[in-house]
Design a protein around this nucleic acid. Sequence first.
DNA 1: GTAATATTGTTATAAAAATAACAATTCCTC
DNA 2: GAGGAATTGTTATTTTTATAACAATATTAC
Lengths: 209, 209
Amino acid sequence: MKILPEKTIERLSQYRRTLNNFYADHNSNRIFSHELAALLNITAVQVRRDIMFIGYSSSQRKGYNVQELIQVISQIIDTHEPINVAVVGYGNLGKAITTYFVGNRPKLNLVAAFDIDPKKIGQETHNIKCYSIDRLREILVAKDITIAILTVPTHAAKDMAKILVQTGIKGILNYTTVNLHIPPEIYLEEYDMITSLEKVAYFVKNKNQ
Amino acid sequence: MKILPEKTIERLSQYRRTLNNFYADHNSNRIFSHELAALLNITAVQVRRDIMFIGYSSSQRKGYNVQELIQVISQIIDTHEPINVAVVGYGNLGKAITTYFVGNRPKLNLVAAFDIDPKKIGQETHNIKCYSIDRLREILVAKDITIAILTVPTHAAKDMAKILVQTGIKGILNYTTVNLHIPPEIYLEEYDMITSLEKVAYFVKNKNQ
DNA sequence: GTAATATTGTTATAAAAATAACAATTCCTC
DNA sequence: GAGGAATTGTTATTTTTATAACAATATTAC
Ligand SMILES: NC(=O)c1ccc[n+]([C@@H]2O[C@H](COP(=O)([O-])OP(=O)(O)OC[C@H]3O[C@@H](n4cnc5c(N)ncnc54)[C@H](O)[C@@H]3O)[C@@H](O)[C@H]2O)c1
Ligand SMILES: NC(=O)c1ccc[n+]([C@@H]2O[C@H](COP(=O)([O-])OP(=O)(O)OC[C@H]3O[C@@H](n4cnc5c(N)ncnc54)[C@H](O)[C@@H]3O)[C@@H](O)[C@H]2O)c1
C-alpha cells in the first residue's frame, strides 16, 4: 500500500484506541463516522476520508464494524513481528514512561532501559531492567531493539543520539529539549513539552482575535 | 497583531530556545537564517518567513541580532504578566513534569500540583506543593492559575476536565489518553505518547516507499 | 569603485491537510 | 413500493503550510 499521510497515521492510532474503548464501553459492534468523530473532536468527513485511504468500507448506511475496523487499522500501523523499544535515560521521565508503557500495546514492547548512573543500573520495573549504557550495543542487538525513546539530560542528548545511530537504531522518539541531527534514513520524532505549553499560553492570550 | 499560524507559534518557541542556547555557546550576537535553520532541521526560508510574520527585520546581509530576536519572539509568545500553571495528577508523569518545569520559563510559573491520594497531598518539590484536589477551586483562584496540565489516570480525566472548566480554567494541556470535550473558548492541546511511538514504528517500517 | 557573492524579505507556487459538496445506497415510514 | 431520511464514499474546493524564486541590498575581494 502507498505510504499514508502523517496526520492520517496519527489519527489511525487514535481511532484504534477510541474504538477499543468504545467496544469495551458499549459492547456494540457498530459505529457511525459521526460517532467516532465526536469522540475525537474532529469531523465525520475526516473520519470517512481516512477510512477510505486505508481501503476499508462498510455496507452503506450501517456504520462501520468496530472489530473489523480495529483489525484493518492494526494491519496498517502494526508490524507483523512485535517491535522492541528501549528507554535511554532512566530518570524522572524515563521511569514514568517505563511504568506507563508496560503491556500497553501488544506489538510495541518496551524491553529495556539504559542509564549511566550506578544507582539506577540494575533497577527493575515490571520486569523491565535498567542496564548500564555501556551495554547499549550488546543489549540492542540481543533484544532486537529498533526504536529508542530518548530521555537523557539535555547535555547528553547529542552524544547519545550519535551512539544510537552507530548501533543501527531505526527510529528515535526524542523527548529531550535538543534538536537532533541524524541521518535521514532514521526516523526521528521530537516533542517538546515547553513548546506545547507556550502554545497553549499564546492561544489562551489571543483567543478573541 | 494578527493571530499567527499554529506552526509558526510552535517554531517561535523552538527558535527562542535555540537562540538562547546559541548565545550561551557561541557568545555571538549574530545568527544567519541558515544557521538557525540547520540547528532545527528546517529550511532557511521557513525561518525567514516566520521572522517576516512577526515583523522583525535585520539589516540585510548581516544576519539577525540574537538578543533582539529573542526579545521580539518573547513579546509575542510571552504574556506581560506571568501565567500560572498547575499540574493536576501528581503521579509518575505529574511529578516528572513538576521537577522539570521549575525555573524553566520566566513567564510560565508552575505554582501548584493537585492529587486525590492522601499520601501525595502535602508533598513538595522545589517549593511546589501538592494540594488536595478538594481545594482546587480555592487554590486556582488564590494563585490565579489559568492553565492546567492534566496527568490524572485515564478514568478520572473526563470528570477532572469538567471540574477545571467549572473553575474557569483558560487552557488545558492534556496528557491523559482520553480525548476531552470542553467548550471551544477554552484552549485544549492534547498529546499522546503512544500515538507518537506508533507513528515512529509505522514510518520505520515503511521508510523505503 | 566594480564585480561577484551572500543574505534578507517578499511574492509566487506547490504540497499537504481539512472541509465541503454531493451522488449512491440503504433503511425507514407510511 | 414510493418518498423521505440517514449514511457512506468520493470528488471538488478551500485552507493551511511549506517551498521555490527572485529582487533588493549589503559585504567582500580585487
Ligand atoms: N521530566 C519531564 O517531565 C520532562 C519533560 C520534557 C522534557 N524532558 C526532557 O527529558 C530529559 C530527561 O528529563 P528528566 O526530568 O527525566 O531528567 P532526569 O535527570 O531525571 O533523568 C535523566 C537520566 O539520564 C541519566 N543519564 C545521564 N547521562 C546519561 C547518559 N550519557 N546515558 C544514559 N543515561 C544518562 C541520568 O542518570 C538520569 O537518570 C531532559 O532532556 C529533559 O529536558 C523532561
Ligand atoms: N507516565 C507516562 O509516561 C505517561 C505517558 C503518556 C500518558 N500518560 C498518561 O498520564 C496520566 C498519568 O499517568 P501516570 O503514569 O503519571 O499515572 P499515575 O497513576 O502514576 O498518576 C496518576 C495520579 O493521579 C492521581 N489521581 C487519581 N485520581 C485523581 C483525581 N480525581 N484528582 C486528582 N488526582 C487524581 C493519583 O493519585 C496519582 O497520583 C494517565 O492518564 C496516563 O495515561 C502517562
